[in-house]
Design a binder for these strands. Structure first.
Lengths: 119, 119
DNA sequence: GCAGTATGTGAACATATATTCATATAGATG
DNA sequence: CATCTATATGAATATATGTTCACATACTGC
């Protein structure tokens, strides 16, 4: 009779080294939340528009063809992730991109997608 | 009496130009699906492990502490997005990263996250 | 302060998605 | 061919998430 091993193609040491190098749970969570922001077509379109021009909420809603409320909810998500900033002017609020990493992320993702033959 | 305008801070022309430059629905969908892959902590951990070493399914399951079935389902998602490749060796299947864009995407995202003071 | 306008937000609802369980498939071995 | 092992997959379930509706909040001008 022998012990059943947890890993088949890995030594216990290798496994522990791999796990030790893994970013902690908190960091992983922050990362997945960050990517989650880009995983929605409405938010992508909002970010796209904002990458071209500062826009007020009502105009964003008209551009993406959704209710102002829906856009407000999405802008909140984008604010929490620090991807957009805003300035108030009277009662209207103007949003703009807070981060040129957004553009960079887009570029990298597009490059990846263009490489594979599309499904 | 006058028409009610769709846009408040935008001419009709500006709005149409913005919308014309927007990537088509299909591209937006592909992009959001692509980002969605990274929007899950299990998949992020799988990708992380694979970025260090080629691994068989059973070992991946042990490393992430989940059932083999769950890992298989996630690997399918990763395969569909062409982020991992695999080779068969007898009955076992070894997975590895298919794309160094993954590493690049990680770097950009981490850079963004490190800039803001974490919540 | 009141009315009007722009934006934000909570609750409800519908849909998407991750995980588990049970089982199917594929290859190896006797 | 029967059995064993590794992986894949379909159905069921639980949870997360996006949108809408109704209303709250914030500012302006009278």
């Amino acid at each position: 009779m022998h012990a059943t091993y947890l890993y088949k193609g890995l030594s216990q040491d290798e496994a522990e080294t791999l796990q030790a190098a893994l970013p902690d749970e908190r960091t992983i969570g922050i990362l997945s939340d960050f990517f989650g922001v880009f995983a929605d077509s409405t938010r992508l379109r909002i970010l796209w528009f904002l990458s071209h021009k500062e826009l007020r909420v009502a105009d964003l809603a008209a551009l993406v063809g959704m209710q102002q409320s829906a856009v407000s909810h999405q802008l909140k998500t984008l604010r929490l992730q620090r991807l957009v900033k805003f300035r108030r002017e009277g009662t209207t609020i103007h949003y703009s991109l807070d981060d040129d990493h957004v553009r960079h992320i887009f570029d990298v993702a597009l490059a990846h997608i263009r490489e594979g033959q599309l499904p």
